[in-house]
Write a protein that binds this DNA or RNA. Sequence first.
DNA 1: GCTGTCCTTGCAAGCGCGTGCAATGATTGC
DNA 2: GCAATCATTGCACGCGCTTGCAAGGACAGC
Lengths: 333, 333
Amino acid sequence: MKKNFVSAQDVAALAGVSRSAVSRAFTPGASIADDTRHRVVMAANTLGYQVNQLARGLMVNRSGIVCLIVTEMDTPYRSRLVRVLTQALQDAGNIAMIINTDRSDESVAQALQQTMRYRADASILLSGLPDRSIVQRCLDNGQRLVLINRDDPIEGPYRINLDDAGAARQALDAFLAAGCRRLAFANSAVGTPSLMAREQGFLEAAQTCGLPVAVARHGATLYQSGTTLAQSLLAGPNRPDAIFCVTDLIACGVMDVARQQFELRIPEDLCIIGFDDIEQASWGAYELTSFAQPITAIADAAMAALADDAPNGLTNQRLNSPLIWRKTVREPS
Amino acid sequence: MKKNFVSAQDVAALAGVSRSAVSRAFTPGASIADDTRHRVVMAANTLGYQVNQLARGLMVNRSGIVCLIVTEMDTPYRSRLVRVLTQALQDAGNIAMIINTDRSDESVAQALQQTMRYRADASILLSGLPDRSIVQRCLDNGQRLVLINRDDPIEGPYRINLDDAGAARQALDAFLAAGCRRLAFANSAVGTPSLMAREQGFLEAAQTCGLPVAVARHGATLYQSGTTLAQSLLAGPNRPDAIFCVTDLIACGVMDVARQQFELRIPEDLCIIGFDDIEQASWGAYELTSFAQPITAIADAAMAALADDAPNGLTNQRLNSPLIWRKTVREPS
DNA sequence: GCTGTCCTTGCAAGCGCGTGCAATGATTGC
DNA sequence: GCAATCATTGCACGCGCTTGCAAGGACAGC
């Protein structure tokens, strides 16, 4: 038994004006006398009236809703991004609707359908890749689409990516400067384009220096993957003295087994570089040197893509991720 | 220049039926011939039609939107709860709208207004406490309100809480069994009811045993607070041999400075118990004994509160948080 | 063959709102 | 004092949808 919300009609009756006047009182820039607006606002307050955004969205063809499509959002990096994005959206007068696609990859398509059902003005994909036909459908319906760190060959939407290869080269330089020569790369098995770009970049940079690198791939981009990756990488005969981990979570897992199981000192015996600069990277137990996700820059770029006057020029933005120096790489002597 | 979405009108034209038929085709249980429904669905698919939930919500007076009001959602516990809640909401045919109230406490009131503007069917507060008048307004308008871990003296909404005091007693028992006698409690300074309940419960339980406990409060419920709390607790003359930390995040901070700065062994020199059982608690660097938030039980309770036939009986649910034994408390010899 | 019942379907009203248009009154310029 | 301009305001329509109501058609029972 749901009661009805207060409507503009009710407010109009109380204020002794027409319903149009109520509407105009809450529409910035509308033609209405200060006195009338004041009376309307007073009446609205006593009644607890709030403009119905559903009906409003119906009229102005702009719901103010932006969908965030995300999987595994309890991951440190993702949750931080979601936090910053929701805040940025609110500041811009929008509101975030969040669609969880943990269940399956096919659920991304469903998510985008859901986002269309609510006539979201835009969708931001933090993970997962939808079918091209669905993407096209969104675009056809005038819905903006922003892809974050999904460096996929897909046309149309705005894309925000990092210079993964550049970061990988920088990681290699750091290892070389620290005197490391037995290189390894710890990757997850998910094969996301951005993750693969880091691996490729690292391998190519090492190749130009004539150095081989041991590559291991396993599981999702989680701590647990790091622990098993470390076991396979560190158990071999030619133990690496430097591991570039595709993700901070993996780096933490690697560090813990390196220290506890193999009794290695970091950075004396083993140098580690991670990626994301999650909060745990700065914790005393890790002090991990890592590339920082430029979260606010990402959010800014996303908001720019959603702006009404979004230029076509920035359709494919590439941001830099600065290397945060902590204590898992030896200082160049 | 926004293009219009395809409407039921368009589908009706293509399928050669009336608008009503289209509507019925997408309304479960509506009176429509299988043949007609099929024709409509075909037409809808070729056009890419999706029911407009905004307009639908306007009619049926049920938007399908549930608002999650949350601050600091990049915290491990919160982000996990948000993840599980969004998934549960989707499974129940709803969708989560998320309102970030990081900015200020007063923004919770604004959040609830926003939630009313979008005619959300319900709001779930994960943090922050709104003014009573706003709460009343939500209830008046038929909007459900669920408070999670906000054990405040506020009438009306559904409340889901933990047995904080019971957990605190259990923590004390564990410490005593481990032979600890110099007890301490590391709390944040935010003074949330649930946090204070843990402190109270611990103090009272200790008092009945005639044991004093050193209490320190500082900062937010974050890792950094743990590091400074440890410094003040461990620097004194009568160093504690057991610290109950109000939160895992704080516990991690405490552990890191205990080990690195005071060179204490855990659990030999110092026993630690945390609360939340965040993912990091299971990491090799911590292996923290902690009380687990019954996240799925919380989500289930929240969903039950949102169900149409929500009974009044469960208006104040109290859940248990099991103690997860790891390695930061000595085994009773 | 006729009536009664049931299943479909279209019509039209209405959900709460924004907005173009015309009407109103107020103000200005001469 | 009168016409012209301007700011305000109400009316009415439409956004895309659901749904009560009545009309139409199919079919069974007599």
